[in-house]
Design a protein around this nucleic acid. Structure first.
Lengths: 143, 143
DNA sequence: ACCAATCGTTGGTGTGACCCTACAATAAGG
DNA sequence: CCTTATTGTAGGGTCACACCAACGATTGGT
């Protein structure tokens, strides 16, 4: 930061990468406290926002490989945060749904992430924070 | 992005993490074309901006472990981008300096990164881009 | 002259993310 | 029925990054 080469500081890609890394690391700390990783939170959030998913659809939506999703759901299931139920109509498919414990865990994680937001964005006033959000959303929407 | 859970989109930490990941990945593609990784570029930039460094100081400045810096400098040296010279006054120390080939490589990489910036920030007008830079700098300065 | 500290180096460990293959169970189509 | 496709699963490999322990060479202090 202070010591970062000006050549790099002139690059928005560098600034984004660095800020993102910091944000990611801080959230990861809270997740680790629950024995989880980033993808676990993404899965919980997706289930909360969009409802139960066929496991493969969940993977596709989040852009993760099927085989990796298996392990994520394994771990969430073992923690009691999600439930797997075989589709009776198509016994190949597995429906993944959020348990009450999973909802509670997600609430905790979102609250933690909110704290991370606050600490990360401390130097910005509310208007600047809103501006930052808008700009980032524009960027993500276009990619 | 489009499919991302609103619960996550509400978190700036998530937006930053995601934008940063995208930026990082795109720059990494260009670096890989030269057989380099992100730290290599950081080292080249630091040498260009601050001049030759004792190897350990370079590691400290960039916040990387001494032992990892050894390998980075090894590879840059093998590529002919930096030069190691023992300090005659203190033969434990090694000075790392940029070669002309290293300067040229850095120019290429910075130019590539500029292209990444443009593609990443395409949805933003010049004023918005400047705003984003300012906000990110504020965040990084405080962390 | 000796001791402690520093520096580069070697080598190993762990982790998260990503990607790919193969397979058994099951389903759907001709 | 038989073939083809899908789904979850198991297992493997790679890669970048981070961190740590130990060692030889060298230096500086005393």
């Amino acid at each position: 930061m202070i010591d970062a080469p000006p050549t790099l500081l002139a690059l928005s890609a560098y600034l984004l990468s660095r800020a993102g890394k910091s944000a990611r690391a801080r959230v990861a700390v809270h997740l680790a406290a629950e024995g989880l990783r980033l993808w676990h939170m993404a899965v919980l959030a997706a289930l909360a926002d969009f409802g139960p998913h066929v496991q493969g659809d969940l993977a596709a939506r989040l852009g993760i490989d099927r085989s990796d999703m298996v392990k994520v759901v394994d771990e969430l299931s073992e923690a009691g945060f999600v439930e797997r139920t075989r589709d009776p109509a198509d016994r190949r498919r597995v429906h993944v749904s959020l348990t009450p414990a999973g909802e509670a865990a997600l609430r905790r994680l979102v609250s933690d992430a909110g704290a991370v937001d606050d600490s990360l964005l401390r130097p910005l006033d509310p208007e600047e924070r809103a501006t930052l959000r808008t700009l980032l959303l524009k960027i993500l929407a276009a990619n």
